[in-house]
């Protein structure tokens, strides 16, 4: 059991999303940064689909009622256990009674807290993701509040082995960190000048040649009107060759659409299922994590990528994650022999 003592800015239960119901207008939801989420799960021996807590800018305070194996991945929100700093991107064994707190946001915008065994919560339409606007999924359909108590599920054999190994090492500290972490290639949260690869959108040709050029040459700022649904960007105005109403159709995670006032909106995890604004671009899936870790005030540069290259990058990255998954279980098996 984990008890929330302070909720933080926006802490919610999310998994990889609610798919299969978009035809009823039920949005996909799910984590903003799928890579950090998946790795957080893999590091504690979970299936990568398991739900995690998504923490935003200012993390929550919480107490552990039982010995728990956790990992925190994504943005660095300065986690500490009973006053001692805890490393991100690795498995951490936490003893019962410990208090986890977060300080300032050093890098990125969101962190993912995975617990071995996942959270014992019901699926709503096949997912544990919280859809706050509709009040469904996650913990009572809401962002976490003080006094909320989250039950933890049964850990896998792999998780149990990791816990036994680390609990033997913890000495007088209240927690023990795994000695190894993952390759920095997976840590997408700390680039000074983030570049995000974008494919041409379905209505790219509707825009003036100047606007097409500006999309890929100038930088855009994430405005304060940005949330899990989408980021409103500020930068050069993007204009259509002539006014044109389009028929609403499906949109995707990372679709860049442009309302008539000319400032682009990047659609993210809580995006609508369909949209009626022209789509100038589409962020390559491999770069969604970079985008989702930007916070208001950050600047981003879009660079063009072909659809074929974007798909190849997708396949390559999935292969790398599968290798990472095998690597982690192999390492644990060797260490626990």
């Amino acid at each position: 059991m984990i008890k929330i003592t302070k909720p933080g800015l926006l802490t919610s239960v999310q998994d990889l999303g609610r798919y299969g119901y978009q035809k009823y207008g039920v949005i996909a939801s799910g984590v903003m940064d799928p890579i950090a989420h998946r790795i957080a799960n893999l590091l504690v021996g979970n299936d990568e689909m398991e739900a995690t807590l998504e923490l935003t800018l200012l993390g929550p305070d919480m107490e552990f009622a039982e010995d728990t194996l956790i990992s925190i991945c994504g943005g660095n929100l300065s986690p500490s256990i009973d006053g001692k700093p805890v490393k991100c991107w690795r498995a951490v064994f936490v003893t019962a009674g410990s208090k986890l707190k977060f300080g300032g946001c050093k890098t990125g915008c969101r962190a993912y807290l995975a617990v071995a065994g996942g959270f014992d919560l019901p699926d709503v339409m096949d997912s544990k993701s919280t859809y706050i606007r509709a009040g469904i999924g996650g913990f009572n359909g809401k962002a976490l509040q003080a006094e909320d108590q989250l039950r933890i599920g049964a850990p896998s054999t792999l998780s149990t082995n990791m816990m036994n190994m680390l609990s033997a090492e913890k000495n007088e500290k209240k927690f023990a960190e795994m000695h190894w972490t993952i390759s920095s290639d997976f840590k997408t949260t700390s680039t000074a000048k983030p570049k995000v690869r974008v494919m041409k959108g379905r209505q790219y040709d509707w825009f003036t040649p100047e606007s097409q050029t500006k999309l890929f040459t100038e930088s855009f700022e994430v405005t304060s009107q940005s949330d899990r649904m989408g980021y409103r960007l500020k930068g050069p105005t993007l204009e259509l060759k002539h006014e044109q109403e389009m028929l609403s159709e499906a949109v995707n995670f990372g679709t860049i659409q442009v309302p008539s006032e000319g400032n682009p909106i990047v659609l993210l995890a809580d995006r609508q299922t369909t949209g009626g604004y022209p789509k100038i671009g589409q962020i390559a899936t491999v770069d969604l994590s970079i985008m989702a870790q930007l916070k208001p005030g950050d600047k981003v540069q879009f660079t063009e990528v072909s659809h074929a290259v974007a798909q190849q990058l997708y396949l390559d990255r999935e292969r790398n994650i599968q290798q990472l998954k095998q690597g982690i279980s192999l390492k644990i098996r060797q260490q626990t022999k």
């Binding site: 798919y19 119901y21 028929l247 609403s248 159709e249 499906a250 369909t274 798909q311 999935e318």
Partner: peptide, 27 residues
């Protein structure tokens, strides 16, 4: 096929590129 999403004059099909066994690109 992960799911489909109908529009006014379109149907979008979301697919899992990993599930496609082909020497060609999934698309």
């Amino acid at each position: 096929v992960i799911e489909y999403v109908p529009g006014f004059s379109t149907v979008a099909v979301f697919y899992d590129p990993i599930k496609i066994k082909s020497t060609k690109l999934p698309y």
